Simulated assay, not measured.
Amino acid sequence: MPLDLTAAQAELDSAGAVLATLEEQVRDGDTTVTPQQLADQRELIAYARLRVEAAERTETRIREDEWATLGAAAKESAEQLITGAGMDGIADATRAAVDAVAHLAALAHERNARIAEIGSTLSQLDNDLQAGPWGSKRYGVWGDRTRLVVPGVGDAPRLDVGMLTTAAVIAGLGATTEGREAQQQHARHFHGLRDQVVRNLLERYPELAKVLSVTEEEWAAADTRGRYELDQQGRRPVAEEVSA
């Protein structure tokens, strides 16, 4: 059974302490201590040092074996992560998030358009009545393109789509430690070079290209500025793979 390093070091320390005691006895004039005793003790110390070195080498081999086992397990796990489902789950969730944000924004834009439409009617009514701002109050409603009010019922202010979608992201990230860190990262990326952030993400994770790239129809429908931004983000349409 290999010697434990702690036990080997204890033996070395004990042998050293015995030698120190014998040498001190000689210094004090003790004639019972013989040269052979000193020599034997020094040999014992040398042997104990070798046993310490042996124990150290044994522990090193054990640690190396443990490291090799951990390394092999980590490699196997990494290979399974890379060659298995990979980014499929992330890609699906990203697609769902994109669709959810797009749906939320579309509903908000639709509501804002309706508010603006009704508000324009009220503004025209105010103008026709020549009764000054909010002349339409006589009919129990007033407002403009940014806000509608029906006293006793409620009001409908224009939705800030950017604020709405940002709030959705914040709520989705959560208030955990990881969530707060992600919120900070989101704010930093969003207020930085947003086009470059998207491009960097797609370059790092090409699996997300099909998820975040626009379709040929969306590209055709975009205006000049929109196509420029999509190009800067690396979100041009992805060519469909043709099966053999």
Rank of each mutant, 00 (worst) to 15 (best):
L70N: 09
A113R: 14
E207K: 06
A156Q: 14
T94P: 10
E207Y: 00
V242R: 11
D65L: 15
L125M: 15
R51C: 10
A156L: 11
V161F: 03
L230F: 13
Q9M: 08
L50A: 15
G162W: 00
A187D: 08
G140M: 03
I90L: 09
L122W: 02
Q232K: 07
E203Y: 01
G29Q: 03
L159T: 10
I170N: 09
G86V: 15
V141R: 06
E23W: 02
L70K: 08
V33S: 11
E217S: 05
T31V: 00
L164I: 12
V169P: 01
A85P: 01
L107S: 08
L3H: 06
Q25K: 09
E79T: 13
G84N: 01
L107W: 04
K75S: 10
E66P: 00
M87Y: 12
A48C: 09
E66M: 07
A222L: 11
Y47F: 15
I118C: 07
L12G: 03
A96Y: 07
Q196F: 02
A108F: 14
M87S: 08
Q37E: 13
D4A: 14
D4T: 04
K137I: 10
L148P: 12
L12S: 05
R57G: 05
V214P: 00
R204N: 05
G89R: 08
T21N: 13
H191P: 04
S243G: 11
T121Y: 09
T176G: 10
E240W: 06
E64G: 08
Q80N: 06
P35V: 00
T21H: 12
E56V: 04
P206Y: 08
E76D: 10
A17E: 02
A78L: 12
A182S: 15
R111W: 14
R199N: 00
A187T: 07
